[in-house]
Design a protein around this nucleic acid. Structure first.
Ligand SMILES: [Zn+2]
Length: 500
DNA sequence: CTTGCCGGGCT
DNA sequence: AGCCCGGCAAG
């Protein structure tokens, strides 16, 4: 996720800028917004982009002057094209001089042949209105809802933008950037400027939001203000890490529903550090499945839990692969106090369901698999035949491996009956192979292992058995056909059916 | 990442 | 005893 985020961010920033430009250029306010965005972005992206207050990419010639330029929020250059509103009309003018002290700009308006002196705030780099129409009455092409206020907005906007520039100016930006990058981010730092830039209506917000999901990463508030700083800052928040996204939301959920695990909230924000939290707090992973709420110590564990217990595990699925991620969240716990996991009423009781974290996967268990794939696969199916003999074996207690093996292939070949509703797409082939395995060899490199078997292993005394080469029930039948496994396998004990 | 299975808990 | 599953080691 982290990578995603970062990527997103980067993209977002660029995109944002671009997107706005083309679509909204017609509309003044939007354009403006775009500009401000750019400003923000550039700041966020790093001081590197700026030098002495202006953008490297567009040094001081007129090229910047077009609407797109990241305007020199810092300063206007002589000859630069700007727009101003004069007597209710918008005019294009060329900058003659920019007085930083007073923040006034002297400019020459072509159409009027006049030299004017305006406050920075009254100067725009982009066109706000179509020249022809009157300033007061305009409809925004883009948003139907926003129509009426146009004029006002544009005004405010123009004011806003410059305002920020006027004061702090370059240092501000630099500082902000640095601060953000280096330290965590106090949104505060940035927010002020941002906020004022955005008196804008939702339209803007939406756009921004869209362009940069920024906000979504944390918690997107509708206000979005782009979260001003947040957007920019997010990346920096140093730690971050695994699954920021849901952790956040989920989290809230979790505490709500359980009530039992305490104070995580406070930590929550910065805490992603899953591993160790100094002190007594330890991180646990909690299953978010509706009536489960299980707590596990390891991420692997929780994943597996979700997979096997709830999702039915998907061997088959590439598609559903990542599902598990959606069903758990991490929580902090006081170490000592916790007896936690085991006893649990919670598991059953709880789950207010407030949050159904995931929409995603509806029916994992469902056997039906649309997938086509090999006809063979369909055939087998655990159901009847399989289970039947399995059972025997199990009860028999001692497995009769020899027999089984032959059987399975049988299944495949036989196909016929195949009433089997379910199928396992990808698996089946594998399965077949494995079953026949004694000598079935195809292309896989892994094959050799079988052959080699003789040689080595054992020896050890370690208590833990060395892992056998043979495929075990789990692998052979797949998790979704757990019922076909030998008892031992089902119990997660050493397989009896396929001995090594 | 997935598998295999020990250790241990629960019924 | 039967059942189940976390956690870990191995790949
Ligand atoms: Zn087995």
């Amino acid at each position: 996720m982290a990578s995603m985020l970062s990527k997103r961010l980067g993209k977002r920033s660029l995109l944002g800028a671009r997107v706005c430009t083309p679509t909204l250029s017609a509309d003044g306010m939007l354009v403006d917004g775009q500009m401000s965005i750019q400003a923000e972005l550039s700041a966020g992206l790093g001081a590197g982009a700026f030098e002495g207050g202006y953008c490297k990419e567009c040094p001081e010639d007129g090229s910047c002057a077009s609407g797109i330029s990241p305007i020199s929020r810092f300063k206007l250059y002589p000859g630069q094209k700007v727009y101003i509103t004069h007597n209710g009309r918008e005019y294009v003018g060329a900058v003659e001089q920019h007085n930083h002290v007073d923040d006034e700009v002297k400019l020459f308006v072509f159409e009027l042949g006049l030299h004017l002196c305006r406050k920075m705030e009254d100067v725009r780099l982009a066109e706000t209105h179509k020249p022809m129409s009157s300033p007061t009455e305009q409809t925004l092409p883009t948003s139907p809802g926003a129509t009426s206020t146009t004029a006002q907005r544009s005004v405010s906007r123009s004011i806003d933008v410059p305002k920020r520039r006027s004061d702090a100016v370059e240092m501000d930006e630099m500082m902000a950037a640095m601060v953000l990058t280096s330290l965590s981010c106090s949104p505060i730092v940035q927010s002020p400027p941002c906020t004022d830039t955005i008196p804008a209506p939702q339209v803007t917000c939406d756009l921004w939001k869209e362009s940069g999901d920024v906000s979504d990463s944390g918690s997107s508030t509708t206000s979005g203000h782009w979260s001003a700083g947040s957007g920019v800052s997010t990346p920096s928040p140093p730690h971050t890490e695994a699954s920021p996204k849901y952790t956040g939301e989920v989290f809230s959920a979790s505490h709500v529903d359980e009530g039992f695990e305490t104070d995580p909230d406070p930590f929550l924000l910065d805490e992603p550090a899953p591993r160790k939290r100094k002190n007594s707090v330890k991180v646990m992973y909690k299953c978010l499945w509706p009536n489960c709420g299980k707590l596990l110590r390891s991420i692997v564990g929780i994943k597996r839990h979700v997979k096997t217990q709830h999702l039915g595990d998907g061997l088959d699925s590439d598609q559903r692969k990542r599902e598990e991620d959606f069903y758990y969240t991490e929580v902090q716990m006081k170490e000592d106090s916790e007896a936690e996991p085991t006893p649990k009423s919670p598991s059953t009781a709880t789950a207010p369901l407030l949050i159904q974290p995931v929409p995603a996967k509806p029916e994992t268990h469902a056997l039906e698999v649309p997938s086509v794939e090999s006809p063979l696969s369909s055939a087998l199916s655990q159901s009847a035949p399989g289970s039947f003999w399995h059972i025997q074996a199990d009860h028999a207690y001692q497995a009769l491996p020899s027999i089984q093996i032959p059987v399975s292939p049988h299944i495949f070949t036989s196909i016929s009956w195949a009433a089997a509703p379910s199928t396992i797409p990808t698996l089946s082939p594998i399965r077949s192979r494995s079953l026949s395995f004694g000598e079935q060899q195809q292309q896989t490199p892994s094959i050799k292992s079988h052959l080699i078997v003789a040689s080595p292993p054992r020896a050890s005394n370690g208590n833990r058995k060395i892992r056998g080469e043979a495929k075990k029930c789990r692998k052979v039948y797949g998790i979704e056909h757990r019922d076909q496994w030998c008892t031992a396998c089902r119990w997660k004990k050493a397989c009896q059916r396929f001995l090594d």
